[in-house]
């Protein structure tokens, strides 16, 4: 009679309705969303890429703007997914009780979390696309059309980051709790995973340490695709991202069940 929170999730195609709900709401607020998606990268790329780039010169044989743009594509997807998976999912789960409303329909938490995960990854993809467009206009995408192959990788990166964010949401008592995750997880990855400088410049032990971070693996694939170079260890990197995505989804489902099941 008791359901185990750890029983295997059985999400169905019906989960798409949850994605559709979020998409329809997002479409209503398109203006501010686009300002955020395009405004931020323009500022980063112009400020850091062009300003700092003039001082730094080339990094690893790449103009700094190119190096930075390919890193920001990945990191901005991570940040966008993390915001969605925490602040937005928390809003729907706790104050708005949207999840309670959906749970009274045939959909289960498995479906809701799958829909939210794919939606968060989609938001990450949108921000990556915006940056790629801005970077292309600034002439920072030497890979040309090959750079489009970065987008499925960004989506996988989004799936890998959605789960951990939803896990935080499942155990959060309020919005302030998310500060821990941003300070202890998102910001270190942003600084250390090769967005601003190559990980080869880190001390040896740290180079090994950053290999546990999913953003490092995403950048190792996304950067060469944007730059137009061959990708090394492609499947290894993708496997790490996929592993994060699957395990984090499973744990996220279990913890949301623990919170919402009576």
């Amino acid at each position: 009679m008791k359901r185990s929170i750890w029983q295997m999730p059985r999400a169905r195609a019906a989960a798409f309705a949850v994605f559709a709900r979020n998409f329809l709401v997002w479409r209503k607020l398109l203006g501010p969303a686009i300002v955020l998606n395009f405004g931020e990268p323009v500022i980063y790329l112009l400020g850091l890429g062009i300003g700092l780039g003039a001082l730094v010169g080339d990094i690893g044989g790449l103009p700094y703007l190119v190096f930075l743009a390919s890193g920001i594509v990945a990191s901005s997807a991570m940040i966008s997914v993390s915001f969605e998976g925490m602040y937005s999912v928390y809003t729907r789960m706790v104050p708005q009780k949207t999840f309670d409303a959906i749970m009274a329909t045939p959909l289960d938490i498995d479906d809701i979390i799958l829909g939210e995960t794919v939606w968060a990854a989609f938001k990450g993809l949108l921000s990556a696309v915006a940056i790629l467009i801005v970077a292309a206009l600034l002439g920072a995408v030497p890979g040309g059309m090959m750079a489009l192959w970065a987008l499925p990788v960004v989506f996988l990166l989004g799936l890998a980051f959605a789960g951990p964010a939803i896990i935080m949401t499942a155990i959060a008592d309020n919005y302030d709790f998310f500060n821990y995750y941003f300070v202890l997880v998102v910001t270190p990855m942003f600084m250390l995973s090769g967005v601003f400088f190559p990980i080869e410049t880190l001390p040896g032990w740290m180079q090994t340490a950053v290999l546990i971070l999913p953003l490092t693996h995403a950048i190792e694939v996304i950067r060469p695709l944007i730059v137009g170079e061959p990708v090394e260890h492609l499947f290894g990197h993708l496997a790490v991202l996929a592993g994060f995505a699957v395990v984090a989804y499973y744990v996220a489902v279990a913890l949301v069940r623990r919170r919402l099941w009576d």
Binding site: A14, A17, L24, K97, T98, A101, P106
Partner: peptide, 27 residues
């Protein structure tokens, strides 16, 4: 169909959209 003790309508949608969206959760 469930009418819960506290309302949990979707504040991001209009009245009509609430009905359409909820129908979608039923497939």
């Amino acid at each position: 169909g469930l009418v819960p003790q506290g309302d949990n309508l979707d504040p991001d949608f209009t009245v009509r959209e609430n009905l359409f969206m909820y129908a979608r959760f039923f497939g």
